Amino acid sequence: MTQVRRVKRPVDGVLLLDKPYDISSNGALQKARWLFQAAKGGHTGVLDPLATGLLPICFGEATKFSSYLLDADKAYRATVCFGRTTTTGDIEGEVVRERPVVFNREALLAAMQTLLGEIEQVPPMYSALKHQGRALYEYAREGVEIERAARRVTIHSLTLLSFDGNEAVIDVVCSKGTYVRTLAEDLGEKLAAGAHLTGLRRTATAGFRLDDAVTLESLEALDLPGRDALLLPPDVLVQHLPAISLDERQTQHFCHGQAVRIDEKCETMSRFRVYQWQTRKFLGLAEALDGAMLQPVRLMAS
């Protein structure tokens, strides 16, 4: 029986997806891309299969600006179990050590305070970080330990939501590159009890919130127009940049990759969102040259 080829569409926009448990970020991306019949798509930073929550997905022209989300701060809700350390730092690993949990809430809060600000963090072996072209978790599964250099990350805030004497729920706001599993393990060591993650949910990134995300099940229940209505425009990824509008003549030159002169003075090397003045159509990104010229650096397709 001949299989009907699925037609792919030129879809442009950003989908805020609530990634489910036990599926990779790429798996969630491919499922969403299939549902939208999108010709092109990419995610904006990997979540572990264990982790759930906010995973912004970019389709079409939005992929040109996805790097701005990779560099953004992140927020997570972590469930930390004390008294056990595992090979992976989470519930999927084997228990390697057990210790009694003898600290109280006040000691936990004090230990959390010591992890705030800039800290050094060694990436876990069970991570997607590459070494000689292979992910570290591939070496870990073979029993091979690779030496990893410590990285400097920033923990902006740690908020204790609950603690029952054994398990804590903590809200974490951190910089890119932070491994919350490692943070939980470090917290456990400071309390001489050890710890591992039993749950991790991303709640925010780059101004986007989990409250506004949609599940794959909800997407499946919609038709294509309903799914398309959930997409945010590509320029939502660069809202932190100042905006400049161009007239029709400037727009023509700009869209052909030519620098255009503007009336206002801008600091050299500053980056801007650029729009067509009358239609408010998003044209792309530009960099200021010599204070009064705008050089295109990333253009939307015409």
Rank of each mutant, 00 (worst) to 15 (best):
V102Q: 12
E61Y: 00
G177T: 07
K40W: 03
L285A: 06
F208R: 04
D48P: 08
P56C: 07
R9V: 00
I23T: 11
V101F: 01
L183I: 08
P296R: 10
R6M: 11
D73R: 09
R77S: 07
V14N: 00
V173D: 05
R9D: 05
V297P: 05
R151L: 05
L299G: 07
Q113M: 13
D48E: 11
L197I: 10
R77Q: 15
V11C: 02
F36I: 06
P123G: 09
E264W: 09
V102H: 12
S24K: 01
Q30F: 05
P124V: 06
R5P: 03
V11F: 00
L230K: 03
Q3Y: 06
K130H: 15
V96L: 15
P296M: 09
A149S: 13
G188D: 04
A184L: 11
L232E: 02
E217D: 14
A78D: 04
A39N: 07
L161W: 01
A192L: 13
V260T: 07
L55A: 07
L197P: 03
P123W: 13
E189Y: 10
Q250R: 12
A111L: 01
K31C: 10
L109W: 08
S24D: 06
T63S: 05
A135G: 11
A193Q: 05
K64G: 07
E120M: 14
I57C: 08
L219N: 04
R84Q: 15
D228Q: 13
G143D: 05
E189C: 09
C81V: 13
V274C: 07
W34E: 15
R152L: 08
L231V: 00
V214N: 03
R209D: 15
L108P: 01
L35S: 05
D212F: 06
V96I: 15
Q250N: 11
R134C: 13
R33W: 00
S157D: 13
L29W: 01
C255V: 15
S175E: 05
V169I: 14
L16W: 00
T215M: 11
S245D: 15
I91Q: 12
M112V: 02
E185V: 15
R273V: 08
T2S: 09
A39D: 14
T114G: 03
R134T: 12
G53Y: 01
A286C: 09
S218A: 15
R6H: 10
R148A: 01
T279L: 07
